[in-house]
Amino acid sequence: MTIPLSTRAAVLTAHGEALSLQEVPLPTTVEPGAAIVRLTCTTLCGTDIEIWSGTMTFPGMLPMILGHEMVGEIVALGEGTSDALGRALHVGDRIGWSESTCGECFGCTVLRQPVACSKRGYGFLQRSDVAPFATAGLAEYAYVTPGAAKLLLPTEVKDTWASMAGCAAKTVLRAFDRAGGVRPGSRVVVQGSGALGIFATAVAHLSGAGTVITVGAPADRLAAARRFGADAVVDIADGSEESVRRVLELTDGQGADLILDLAGAPSVGPEAVAMAAQRGTFVVVGSTGPVGDPIALSTIMGKELTVVGSLNGDIADYYRAIEFFRSFAGRLPWDELFSEPVGLSHASAKVAAMSTFGEIKAVIDPRLA
């Protein structure tokens, strides 16, 4: 078995600056349960942009390789490596994978919730100058650790779809699950018109919502939301009060039965509570960054609202996201979410474009120049 000993990668060395193309080491041996893959597709996520800009940071995280939505072909395997469903893996197989978990902590064993793992490991939590060096997406090769839950991918699910399933899509599907699903004919508001918001709009539409309203900006994103199932859109450029007024108007004064925060702006909490119908549900998914504006607890009490937090997703959500794309492949124009793929040398430009809302979902194919 020939094991690559290094990989070309786009490395983040300072927040807000261009990524540096470097040759990064790979482990010289592949542990049991691990794999080395040649990456064929990485889709950039909002979290990548937050890390790049410094909005999301912590001491000692740099240098690092961005990218946690990716697909690759196995080039080397450790002994006994299988996927999450127990299927044996082989060199040449196309796989995706979820972040690593330890299987031993309170979150893993008592709560049985991988998202609560105290040692949960994303590719972007791995310094590129510390073994195993390259576990993320903006590289030619990645080391998939033994604790990462791997999935053998069905051929009919495209690389871009499978990559997006690795974070954005699984995060949205978990949020709907945490909310108890969509009641047929109900009124759903999606706060946010980025990749997650547009995908959530599609999920609400396909799940039988009677009215789907996407609240966000800019105009081209709202136009995309309409193509993915929004019955109406509300531009946040008009301000919070006007956004709430429009949602109430569009719901005959009743408000929304289900509201999903996929925007993370400070104002989403008060807006959601104001837009909610009596006994509605508000799912907080996108608020990973700034501290939110105060919410009136008396309104939550008076409306008897259910407020639910939802954190990313685990291997079960990832599997369901893959199956979602397989089941609904022809129902909506999924390919419109993705830009034309470019090589690692253009990764910095794609990060910058996404930071200014120039693209919904940038695609990097490390095999390209």
Rank of each mutant, 00 (worst) to 15 (best):
T2E: 15
P4R: 12
L12S: 00
L19I: 03
Q22I: 03
V24R: 01
P25C: 12
A35K: 04
A35V: 06
V37T: 09
G46D: 06
D48K: 04
S53T: 13
G60N: 00
E69M: 02
V75A: 15
S82F: 09
S82W: 03
D83E: 01
A84C: 14
R87K: 15
A88G: 10
S100I: 09
T109C: 15
V115R: 13
A116F: 11
K119Q: 07
G123P: 05
A131C: 13
P132G: 09
A134T: 08
G137T: 01
L138R: 01
L138G: 02
A149V: 04
A169D: 06
V172K: 10
R174C: 10
G180Y: 14
S186A: 10
R187S: 15
V189N: 03
V189H: 05
A195I: 11
A200L: 01
V203A: 02
A204D: 07
A217T: 14
P218E: 10
R221G: 10
A230V: 00
D238M: 04
G239C: 05
S240P: 12
E242A: 15
L248Y: 13
T251A: 13
G269Q: 06
A296G: 03
L311N: 07
A316G: 08
A329I: 07
L332D: 05
W334L: 08
D335E: 15
L344D: 00
A347C: 05
K361S: 05
